[in-house]
Amino acid sequence: MPELVLYYSPSCPFCKKVTDFMLKHDIKIKMVDRDWSQENRQELIDKGGKPQVPCLLIDGKALYESDDIVKWFQDNLVAS
C-alpha cells in the first residue's frame, strides 16, 4: 500500500466530503489538520506546493480536489 497522508481543514466542506467517504468505507490513514499550526500549513506547502485542502499525498505526490481524492479511494482502497 502506498504511503498516504490527508491534509484537511475541519471547516472545509470539500474536506468533509472526503472524510465522510473515509468514515463510510473505514479508510484509516494519517490525517493532518492544516489549520492546527503554522508548521502544518507550511509542511503542506512544502510537500504539495500550495496550502489548498483537501490534499492527499500518495507516496509524497499531491492529489487535490475532493472528487479526485474520493475517486482514488474508490479505485484503490474500496473493495468492489
Rank of each mutant, 00 (worst) to 15 (best):
M1P: 09
P2M: 11
V5L: 04
V5M: 06
Y8W: 10
P10I: 12
P10H: 12
S11C: 04
S11Y: 13
C12T: 05
P13N: 10
F14M: 10
F14T: 09
K16L: 14
V18R: 01
T19P: 04
T19V: 13
D20R: 07
D20L: 10
D20H: 09
D20I: 09
D20M: 06
F21C: 05
F21W: 07
L23T: 15
K24F: 04
K24I: 10
H25C: 06
H25S: 05
H25N: 15
D26V: 10
D26M: 06
I27W: 02
I27E: 05
I27V: 12
I27S: 03
K28C: 06
I29H: 04
I29Y: 04
I29G: 06
I29W: 07
K30W: 09
M31N: 00
V32N: 03
V32W: 04
R34C: 00
D35L: 12
W36K: 14
S37T: 15
S37N: 11
E39Q: 13
E39T: 12
E39L: 09
E39M: 08
E39A: 15
R41G: 00
Q42V: 00
Q42P: 00
Q42E: 15
E43R: 12
I45H: 08
D46M: 11
K47N: 15
G48N: 04
G49E: 07
K50Y: 05
P51W: 00
P54K: 11
P54R: 10
C55M: 13
C55F: 02
L56N: 08
L57P: 07
L57K: 07
I58C: 02
I58L: 01
D59C: 08
G60C: 09
A62C: 11
Y64F: 15
Y64V: 02
Y64K: 02
Y64D: 02
S66P: 08
I69R: 03
I69S: 04
I69P: 04
V70G: 03
V70C: 06
F73W: 01
L77P: 03
L77K: 13
L77I: 03
V78F: 07
A79D: 09
A79K: 10
A79Y: 01
